[in-house]
């Protein structure tokens, strides 16, 4: 009993030193990234200082525009509009793409029938989808979000189909023998196996989606970051263009750091604790 207690204590102490060294190790890349970004900013400032031009404003100028736009409330409004479109298109694309992908992965005949459609949609240029969506469904919010989602759905399907093909039949047999309900099957057997594929689709998805959202806004919306960039393009205000772009990139970075990564860590906790 004593020995067991002692080893337990030692384990806990080991855990603490491990987590301490772990936090140092995880802080180091963060510091490196920060220094790297700072270096990029300095380089930008130097180049802008050497060749002063309206086409390349210095970082401080961009920062001033950013503060001004933020104070007027415009920045927050347009960022929010873009962010909501990104979120809506992401949700639609991930749900529709996952369902279709899993179905195609499970039913070989449907897969061979629909595969040419998939290849067609994979190769359809984003611009064509957007223009057609606006022509067919009008300059509406639904058309805009739908067009973005359609651009992303084929990629999600391909990734999730791969995941569905790789499902382990032993778990399905276990579920049959022990009569797991549909809901339990999806939650405890299907989703955990598809999670890595979902994470991949989701990662590559969100970057693609926000780029397409800007095009959609430029072509047929009267708000959002894309609309503002188009506006400032017409009056050749590069500082404002950069201010809006960097603000949105910063938001996406925060989402990645504080939403996506913690969620992924939670979903793969059983892997990290493996002995």
């Amino acid at each position: 009993m004593m020995a067991k207690h002692g080893s337990e204590k030692r384990d806990r102490a080991g855990l603490r030193t491990w987590s301490a060294s772990h936090s140092v190790r995880s802080a180091l890349p963060a510091a490196t990234s920060l220094a790297s970004l700072l270096g990029l900013g300095l380089l930008w400032g130097m180049v802008a200082g050497m060749w002063p031009s309206r086409a390349l404003p210095p970082p401080l100028e961009v920062w001033r525009v950013l503060l001004k736009e933020a104070a007027s409330g415009d920045l927050v409004y347009h960022l929010a509009m873009t962010l909501w479109r990104v979120a809506a298109a992401y949700a639609v694309a991930m749900i529709v793409g996952s369902v279709i992908g899993v179905l195609l992965g499970r039913h070989r005949r449907a897969d061979s029938f629909f595969n040419p459609w998939l290849v067609l949609f994979l190769n359809l240029p984003a611009l064509v989808v957007i223009v057609l969506a606006y022509i067919w469904f009008g300059l509406t919010e639904a058309a805009a979000i739908g067009a973005v989602a359609i651009n992303k759905i084929p990629n999600v399907i391909v990734t999730m189909r791969e995941g569905a093909r790789a499902l382990d039949h032993r778990y399905a047999e276990m579920a049959t023998v022990y009569r797991l309900g549909q809901l339990d099957y999806v939650r405890h057997i299907l989703m955990p196996q598809l999670q890595p594929y979902f994470a991949v689709a989701s990662r590559s998805g969100i970057a693609l989606i926000w780029k397409i959202v800007l095009v959609v806004e430029l072509l047929g919306r009267s708000n959002g970051v894309g609309f503002q960039i188009y506006l400032y393009f017409q009056i050749f205000d590069v500082a404002a263009i950069l201010a809006y772009t960097l603000a949105f990139v910063a938001i996406m970075l925060l989402i990645e750091l504080f939403l996506v990564q913690p969620l992924e860590r939670h979903a793969t906790r059983w892997r990290r604790r493996s002995a």
Partner: peptide
Amino acid sequence: NRVAAVFQEPVLLPWRTVEQNVRLALS
């Protein structure tokens, strides 16, 4: 009124704890 099986391999769900694995099989 159910059947239960112990397979050649344990076939435990790696993403669930031992207790969750056991409870999941219960009605």
